[in-house]
C-alpha cells in the first residue's frame, strides 16, 4: 500500500503543484492542518495519564505550532493574504475538521494507544508526502529548504510514536497495537468517504432547497414585507414568564 501510495503521489503531485496558486493553497492548508494538530497534541499533553509521554506530546505540539507559522508565512509570500480573512472566519470549522469534534479532542475519542497509532501513521504519511515533493523538485528552493527543516521534526514524531508503540508491543499488547494501527489505517478512507457523502448530501439538499425556495416560497412574497426600521414597543407577553420560558418560540 505504501508503494502504491508513493506511486500515486508521484503521479498526482506534479499536476497538483503546477496549477495556478497551488503553492498558496497547499501551504495555507498545511498551516491549518499543523495548527489543528498542535491543538490536539496540547490536549494529549494535558490529558495523558502517562507522565513520561506528556513531554513528548508537548514538544510535538510546539513543533506543530512552529510549522503552522512557517507554512502560513510562506503561504503569505505567495499572496495567501487574500484568503486570510476568510480563513479566520472559518477557523473554527477548519479546526473541527482537524480533530476537535463535539468538544472532544482526538486523544479523548481514541484513547492513548489508538492516538499514538494515529500520530504514527499521520506523521509517516506526511514524511512520505513531503519526501516526494522534495525528490521530484516540485518546490522552489526556499520552500523546499523550509520543508526539509520541518521534515526533521516529522522524523522525530514518527520515531517517538513508533518507539512507544513498540513499547506497548513488548509489554504484551501487540494485538492491541496491531488493531489500533488497522483501525487508523481504515479510518482515513472511511472518513474521506464520509466527507464525500456529506458533500454530496449538501449538494442534493441545496438543489432541492433552492427548488423549494423558488417554487414554493415565491407566492408568499406577495404578502411579505421587510420589517420597518425604528423602535417599536414590545407588547406584554400574555403567558406567564415560566410558561414563556418553557417554549422555544
Amino acid at each position: 500500500m505504501g508503494k502504491l501510495r508513493r506511486t500515486w503521489l508521484k503521479l498526482v503531485s506534479p499536476l497538483a503543484w503546477s496549477r495556478p496558486g497551488a503553492e498558496r493553497r497547499f501551504l495555507a492548508s498545511f498551516s491549518e492542518t499543523e495548527r489543528g494538530s498542535a491543538v490536539d497534541m496540547l490536549a494529549a499533553a494535558e490529558l495523558t495519564e502517562r507522565r513520561d509521554l506528556r513531554r513528548k506530546y508537548f514538544i510535538h505540539a510546539l513543533d506543530e505550532t512552529r510549522h503552522a507559522r512557517l507554512f502560513a508565512r510562506r503561504a503569505g509570500d505567495f499572496g495567501a493574504e487574500s484568503v486570510r480573512a476568510r480563513a479566520a472566519l472559518n477557523d473554527a470549522n477548519t479546526l473541527q475538521a482537524h480533530g476537535i469534534v463535539g468538544g472532544r479532542s482526538l486523544f479523548e475519542r481514541y484513547g492513548e494507544l489508538e492516538f499514538l497509532a494515529f500520530v504514527h501513521r499521520s506523521e509517516a504519511l506526511a514524511v512520505e508526502q513531503f519526501g516526494v515533493y522534495h525528490d521530484l523538485e516540485l518546490l522552489d528552493e526556499k520552500t523546499d529548504q523550509m520543508l526539509q527543516n520541518i521534515l526533521r521534526d516529522e522524523h522525530f514524531h514518527v520515531g517517538y510514536s513508533r518507539t512507544e508503540l513498540e513499547r506497548y508491543t513488548r509489554s504484551g499488547k501487540g494485538a492491541d497495537v496491531q488493531r489500533a494501527l488497522r483501525k487508523v489505517f481504515w479510518r482515513r478512507p472511511w472518513e474521506a468517504w464520509m466527507r464525500f457523502s456529506v458533500q454530496i448530501g449538501h449538494v442534493v439538499t441545496s438543489f432541492w432547497m433552492t427548488v423549494l425556495y423558488l417554487v414554493v416560497v415565491a407566492p408568499f412574497k406577495l404578502g411579505a414585507a421587510r420589517e420597518r426600521p425604528g423602535f417599536r414597543d414590545v407588547p406584554p407577553d400574555p403567558r406567564s414568564r415560566m410558561t414563556a420560558a418553557r417554549g422555544q418560540g
Binding site: 439538499t205 425556495y213 412574497k221 420589517e227
Partner: peptide, 24 residues
C-alpha cells in the same frame, strides 16, 4: 428560525443562496 424564514420570503428571490444553507 421564524425570523430567518420570514426574512427569506421578504427578500425573495435574492435570498436564494442563503435559504438552502440556512435550511440545512
Amino acid at each position: 428560525f421564524q425570523r430567518i424564514l420570514v426574512n427569506s420570503v421578504a427578500e425573495f428571490p435574492r435570498a436564494w443562496r442563503s435559504f438552502p444553507r440556512a435550511m440545512q
